[in-house]
Design a protein around this nucleic acid. Structure first.
Lengths: 199, 199
DNA sequence: TTGACACACACACAAATGTGTGGTATATAA
DNA sequence: TTATATACCACACATTTGTGTGTGTGTCAA
């Protein structure tokens, strides 16, 4: 999808420079900034490169706007590999299941925060002590969903259970007991992801 | 740290417009684009706002460069909450442990990919079937680290164990046995994070 | 040999853009 | 009262910037 034609070495260098500039300056370069970088004495040369990069599917340009170079693949898109086949030498990444676009995934940033897990009450659900859970602020949730609730003014992560009109907060650890709560009122958010960082 | 002074309503609107432009156009606006948006007939007005936003700690400007407005807080920074106290009403986020800056966290993007977990051989380490693990491509690892290895041309996630000069790949599930491997040669990467997405 | 492509250059022009230097008015705190 | 902050405006200027229109060389496949 959105196939990208192979680039020459020089074209790659120009593209890398643009990426680098966006990363460092948080701003795409102007045509003349690119020219300066590569000692091109003409802006036309740069425009040749940019046109090529557009044609080959790596960037988009907006006419008559300064610095309007947009990368087609955003830098925060990670490939999801379903199966790693042997082969090598460059670890043939052909079985790309899809992409996780973190920008999009984490939209509504103001309603989302990370909570650090304390205790082992959710280990059987794969949520370990010190894990970070991505929490989306919400006041209600469905049966079976993992929620963040306030119990005695402490944040707890549990599974929400609705049984005969009653609401329980159920741990995922046999050594703990479910907690009966009065209403949904104590729910402050839903766990939408777990992130664990090693090292 | 990097305290930000309170903004007026109008100043907020200008800042929000800049954020929006960066998000949509992937390019900060020019002074005149801002002026147009708010029907300012003078560019000086915009510069007053920008200076104020700089002084109050929300943006940075680079002199003599078009569109060189840099947001001080990057949009992909998530607060890590250690403890959620009761209180409300806006869920007093005072116990901010720190921030997870996904941009930085995921640097070296070309050496990183996501692998989908198959099987339950790592459940006791909190890595469940269908989880995504963030893998950093590396050819060696230390004892105890969770690695991705190729066994019979299939990618497997296991714990690396070094015992008396020998290398084992150990599952985190009592129902499975450790595997003796000849050398590090089968290691293709290190697991640096686990990501699990609900719903 | 023709054509497409990669890789460079020169030069001029109009538009976009940041900057400099002034101004007015209102409100609030010292 | 004086100072400071907010919230605008006017206008000119120098640079920056994208654009247009050319030219030239070499390579490589059809």
């Amino acid at each position: 999808m959105a196939e990208q034609i192979e680039l020459t070495q020089k074209q790659k260098k120009v593209l890398l420079f643009i990426r680098k500039k966006i990363k460092i300056d948080k701003l795409p370069p102007t045509i003349r900034e690119i020219a300066k970088q590569f000692n091109f004495s003409s802006t036309g040369t740069v425009r040749d490169y940019l046109s090529t990069l557009v044609r080959k599917g790596y960037i988009k340009l907006a006419a008559r706007r300064s610095r309007a170079i947009e990368l087609i693949r955003p830098p925060l898109r990670l490939p999801i590999i379903g199966k790693v086949v042997a082969g090598l030498p460059d670890l043939a990444i052909e079985d790309v299941e899809g992409y996780l676009d973190l920008d999009r995934w984490l939209n509504n940033e103001d309603k989302i925060f990370l909570l650090r897990i304390k205790g082992d009450s959710m280990v059987e659900a794969g949520i370990m002590p010190d894990d970070l859970v991505l929490v989306k602020r919400e006041v209600s949730a469905q049966d079976g969903q993992i929620v963040v609730a306030l119990i005695e003014s402490e944040a707890t992560v549990k599974i929400l259970r609705r049984r005969q009109g009653k609401v329980y907060l159920e741990p995922a650890n046999k050594r703990y007991q479910p907690i009966l709560v009065e209403k949904d009122s104590s729910i402050i958010g839903k766990v939408i992801a777990v992130i664990r960082k090693y090292v």
